[in-house]
Design a protein around this nucleic acid. Sequence first.
DNA 1: TTAAAAATATGATAAAAATCATATTAATTA
DNA 2: TAATTAATATGATTTTTATCATATTTTTAA
Lengths: 225, 225
Amino acid sequence: MGKCESCIVKEFNSLKALTRDELMRVSACKTGKTFNKGRVIFEEGDTINGVYCVKDGVCKLTKLSENGKDQVVKLIVKGGLLGKRSLVTNESSSLTATALTEMEMCFIPKAEILADLQKNPNFTLDVLQKMTEDLKESEHSIVNMAQKPVKKRMAEALLYIHDGFGTDEDGYLTIVLSREDYASIVGTATESAIRILSQFKKEGLISTSGKRIKIEDANALKWVE
Amino acid sequence: MGKCESCIVKEFNSLKALTRDELMRVSACKTGKTFNKGRVIFEEGDTINGVYCVKDGVCKLTKLSENGKDQVVKLIVKGGLLGKRSLVTNESSSLTATALTEMEMCFIPKAEILADLQKNPNFTLDVLQKMTEDLKESEHSIVNMAQKPVKKRMAEALLYIHDGFGTDEDGYLTIVLSREDYASIVGTATESAIRILSQFKKEGLISTSGKRIKIEDANALKWVE
DNA sequence: TTAAAAATATGATAAAAATCATATTAATTA
DNA sequence: TAATTAATATGATTTTTATCATATTTTTAA
């Protein structure tokens, strides 16, 4: 396991705002954690007591609805910081984090980083800034969920994953999700998600190979009503 | 206009974390603003350059959807701080604020308070904490919008307004909203909102007098499917 | 490799919600 | 106050989405 001071991953998150000294302390107490695909990293109600810095892989943050279905609230990739809120509140987690791929992360105990939150305003401000972005995105989701039809939301989800997380050499989305995951992102029944993806396939907007999805006509997807 | 140091309103928001000195500076530069019912306080895209401390009244924060409809994202009442995000980013507002009642507020220029965000970690941390709560609530809304039927969302909206903002002497909700506002909170068509409220009335869950709404059977509302 | 289980697919139907039309009532203002 | 406008109400209809049923395919594990 490398040193935080020289780790490139932190440049994508608030840890970059820590001083060299602070980073060295963090580095000394962090532990490496690996999670297999499908593994639950933490669950709603769990006390987290630290943050995970994502070195590789993707996970979903979900919230259980009263109807028993999970709703995906956010996807986290390399560079992301997981469990930010545990630094600020003593409440248990309101979200569940589940690995969607093999994941490599560093866990930093809350105790070790809490003092920095008090003493290093640059760090606090950066966390605050990231939280602000999260909130903005979250509010955008509310509007989408409330006002846009399922088909449109699915089209946007595909484009979001395409633009945000990229494609492999063959042009397939790097993040491979089950239809159930798509349903849970879009906020619909699994059958409906499957149906809409089938329709997109028939219309030539996407193509598939097993679970993998390739966007064939991004522009048409953009204009889906 | 009174002094911030002795103002009770700030106890409900992050301004309470400022020192006496800081509060005196804030007090010296703040301006009082009044907004009539229906008045737009700021709009999506506006540069705000400060925060509003709500001394009295209620306003809604909305976001315009691509279908042309507004979605209510949050209601703000006495004690609330409006425009928090303008302190943290230089982006223009992603929300529109509109007065739902006569409003009395104090406006504090960003320039005056920005230094405190750098120097007073208690203040920054409190803002961060509030932002965390906002995010949690926002994510809760995503799940509701995505997973719950309109009727259930309306029932919850009524209970939320009842529990959060109280009733007058006659038992009517203190916040009086148009049916269109209810539609915009719940995320549905105005006719659908009207229809559901009519149904609740028929079933004795609520009663109305003009625009005013009284909750007659909170327990039954809680169990609406 | 094969059997069992899980995921995907698709049809049929029901339920939920939007849209369009048109009253009716309430609020404004000329 | 009357006339106009806006808000609320409700019916009829269409569209969207969920649910239930049942194949088919894919994956997993015995």
